[in-house]
Design a protein around this nucleic acid. Structure first.
Lengths: 116, 116
DNA sequence: TGAACATATGAATAAGTATTCATATGTTCA
DNA sequence: TGAACATATGAATACTTATTCATATGTTCA
């Protein structure tokens, strides 16, 4: 799996060591990638954007996004597992809302990049 | 593909319409998800974190992350296509560096969520 | 209680993708 | 020029995952 040593590795040894010393822990980087993976799906991005405005129940999101109740429910579970949304039950309905203040900031930064 | 209309849709009609009116365009949301998809891989996250410190050539990154030159090269192409990194050639080596100021902010916000 | 409603979920399928392997491209230097 | 070096890339494989379909769970109300 590891690559062979190149000649420049020796020359850049200090740069490599510095980077190695300053990188977050393996587990942290894994969790970070997992978080972005959750953001990396159009359906979930749409759901989160919808919830920026207000809490919504599952069937409302389904109608808004013109997708099946099942697919929305599956994706809401992913979002909940990532602790990005929370829910409350009221009668037959389940209302979902955002559970993290960082999401909006992250989306705004992302939109800045996309719109450039 | 579309879900059936639920009873609560009629009740929440104003909420749905408001959300629909305030959501970014379909294409923008697609691009946003595509951007996060690029962030949603451990290898690419590691590469970007490494480049936070300084520019690095391909074989240095390979050594740092203990991965093959080929896999790093493939992922650098993904990052370059997303306009997240740029490169310059110097002799036999190709040096990669960050190409976007938003990345650091996005990562910091992400790390805040992950570390909670 | 039973029927309609709202949501959740397991299994299956289809589509996407990260890595590996082999090899091509391009550079430097003796 | 030729050999070693550094990187890029196409094809194949293994793995992940989003959606669909069918159905289960749980709630309300007549």
């Amino acid at each position: 799996m590891a690559s062979d040593i190149c000649e420049c590795n020796a020359v850049h040894q200090d740069v490599i060591e510095f980077a190695r010393a300053n990188m977050p822990e393996e587990e942290t980087l894994y969790d970070l990638a997992e978080l972005f993976k959750v953001f990396g799906d159009t359906t979930r991005v749409k759901i989160l954007c919808a919830l920026f405005e207000s809490e919504m129940c599952v069937c409302d999101i389904s109608l808004l996004l013109n997708m099946t109740q099942s697919s929305i429910s599956h994706q809401l579970r992913v979002l909940k597992n990532a602790k990005l949304v929370k829910n409350r039950k009221e009668g037959k309905s389940v209302y979902y809302s955002l559970n993290d203040d960082h999401i909006k900031h992250i989306f705004e930064q992302g939109l800045d990049h996309v719109r450039e």
